[in-house]
Amino acid sequence: MFRRLAASAALMLCFAGAASAQQLTPSPTLDAIKARGHLECGVHLGLPGFSFADDKGVWQGIDVDFCKALAAAILGDATKVKYTPTSVQQRWPILQSGQVDLLSRNTTITFSRNASLGVNFLGINFYEGQTFIVRKKANISKPDEMDGATVCVAAGSTEEKQATDWFAERGKKVTIVNFQRNDDAIAAYDAERCDAYTAGFGALAGQRSKLKAPDDHVILTQLISNDPQGPTVRYGDERYQAVVRWVLNGMIAAEHFGITSKNVDEMRRSSTNGEVRRILGVEGNFGQMLGLSNDWLYNAIKQVGNYGESYERTVGMDSPLKLPRGPNQLWTKGGLLFTSPFQ
């Protein structure tokens, strides 16, 4: 009897030992980021408001902010990011080959990309929708009136196919001229080669500044597609994917709970809300469960801010783009942002 008890106790100890040693699944990506001391982030070649290098050469934008928040969560320092500008064509090989840890660059979430490129989309940081920029003097108020028009577009973007489909479905004849780079397509539109240039409304708001006379143009308000965009990673390494997903959730949740970069210290000291306490690492050990320190989201919010702060600073009312929140607002305030609970 005693011997049997001792044997089962030894077995239990073995399980416990094995279990504690295996608490974290291995994450080669997180290990590599920590070992090299910085995050490798693939961004856009230059899209004001989303990712662009400002006149001092510092990367700015809502997509850049996400890279910074992730670096703050993993490494404790939002400045430890190396940015790799990628074109529409280069982005997939650069992500697939492991040159960057993630893409955070206006990339639309689509089925065939998810299924055949070996990439996963881990949430939505911008609800984009395709529309057109046209000259004011052309007197167009909605895409339906564009029968016979010529449209400049970047080759290989989702917009190229979407515009072709949309006009074909409505029996309208539109000529699509596809350029290798966004900037060349915009330059050709500006030189009147095309009647319109097409991209997401957010991207258009940013790219408008590249036109010679931005005020002579108008961005149509009717959208012809839903183009949700968010951080993109390779297949595999689920623990790293969980970190990326929950940093984004954390930034949105922080806005929901009113945690900002300015009041985060006070909230950490005095908040009585369980979820806020768990987000900020006062209660539970959520950071450690992902192999990070418990102040992971505290660092991200303190150094970068919550989602709303980042939005207003980069594309919103505090930026030259002046985009209203629209769908990119909390669901409680009429938008689409909705995160899963920190429980």
Binding site: Q89, S112, R113, L117, A155, G156, N178
Partner: peptide, 11 residues
């Protein structure tokens, strides 16, 4: 190498 590659991703 531009449009078709991006539509399919088969570089």
């Amino acid at each position: 190498m531009g449009s078709a590659l991006n539509a399919t991703g088969q570089a």
